[in-house]
Simulated scan of single mutants.
Amino acid sequence: MTVDAEGITLIGIVVPVLNEAALLPRALDAIAAARQEFERESMCRVRLVIVDDGSTDDSARIARSRPDVEVIASRHRGVGSARAAGAAHLLAGARPTQTWIASTDGDSAVPAEWLSVHHAAATSGAEVLVGQIEPDPADLTPRQLRRWRSLNPPTTEPVYIHGANLGIRGDVYLRSGGFQAASSDEDVLLVDALRHQGSRIRGTDQAPVLTSGRVRGRAPDGFARYVREELG
C-alpha cells in the first residue's frame, strides 16, 4: 500500500439522482468497483453521497440497499441544488483543504481508474479537474457516435465541462460559492466562477465516464438536449 501525498485525506463522491431506478444499479456497481480499485492502492478515505432529488420511483430504496452509501434528500428540486446539497453534506465537519469533491451522475458509469485519476490530480497541484464523458454506444446510432467523437475529441484542455466527471478541492469549492441552484448548466457556471477566481484548473482525457445517451433527460437543458439537438 502506498502512502498518500500530503493534503487530500477524503474523496467525497456526489451523485444527484432523480428517477434513475433503471440506471442507478449500474452507476452504483461502477462506483463500487472504482472504490475497490482505489482503496487497494491508497489510504485516502472515500465517501459516497446519493442526493435524492424528489424521485417517485425506487431510486432512494436502491441506493439505501447498498453498503457504504449515504442517502440524503435535496430540499429544492433541481440538479444544481442537489449537487450543492451533496457537497455541503460532505464538507460538514470535514477539512475543506483536505477534501476532494468528485461529481458524477446517476445515469453514468465511472471507469475503475476514475478515483485514482482524480486523486492523482488533487495531490499533484490541481484544484479543479475537468474530465470527459462518453455517451453509451447502445443509446446512439453509429452516425451519432461518429458525430459525437468528431465534436468532442480527447483533450487534456479543460474545455468540455460535465457534472458527470468533475472534481474540485473543498476549500476552492467554498470560495467559488459552490453549485448554483440552476436546473441545468450548474457545472459550467461553477467552472466559470472558478476560472474567474484564478483556480488551478486541469483537464484530462483519462478515465472518461460512460453516460446515458438518452434524448429525454432529467435536466431540461442537460446532456439529453445536446444529444437530441446536436447529434440528431
Rank of each mutant, 00 (worst) to 15 (best):
L28M: 13
V49P: 00
N19K: 07
S150W: 01
S150G: 01
R216P: 00
E41W: 13
L194P: 10
I72S: 04
T204V: 10
G54P: 09
V172N: 02
L190I: 11
L10G: 04
G163T: 03
N19Y: 06
H196K: 14
S150C: 01
G93R: 09
A122I: 01
V14Y: 02
E6C: 12
D136F: 06
G163E: 08
D58K: 14
E127V: 10
W114V: 03
G93K: 08
G213H: 08
S65E: 14
I62K: 12
C44W: 02
G177D: 07
S55P: 04
G213F: 06
G222S: 07
A73V: 11
L189P: 00
W148C: 01
V49S: 00
D192A: 15
S212R: 08
G86A: 02
T141C: 06
V209T: 15
E157I: 05
G170L: 11
D4C: 06
Y173L: 09
S103K: 00
S150T: 11
V110P: 10
L48F: 04
D187H: 10
G167Y: 05
E157N: 08
R35S: 02
E157Q: 14
A193V: 07
V51W: 01
G125N: 11
V159Q: 11
G170S: 08
S108V: 02
T211M: 08
G170E: 13
D139K: 04
R47G: 05
G167S: 14
V14H: 02
P220K: 00
I101C: 01
V209Y: 07
V159G: 09
A121I: 02
G203I: 13
P137M: 09
S184C: 06
A94L: 04
A109F: 04
T211D: 02
H196R: 15
P135T: 08
F38Q: 09
L194A: 10
P158M: 09
L145W: 03
T156D: 15
V51K: 01
V14L: 05
Q180W: 00
V130G: 10
A94M: 03
W148E: 04
D187E: 14
L115Q: 11
S212G: 14
W100C: 13
L28A: 05
V51T: 08
V130M: 09
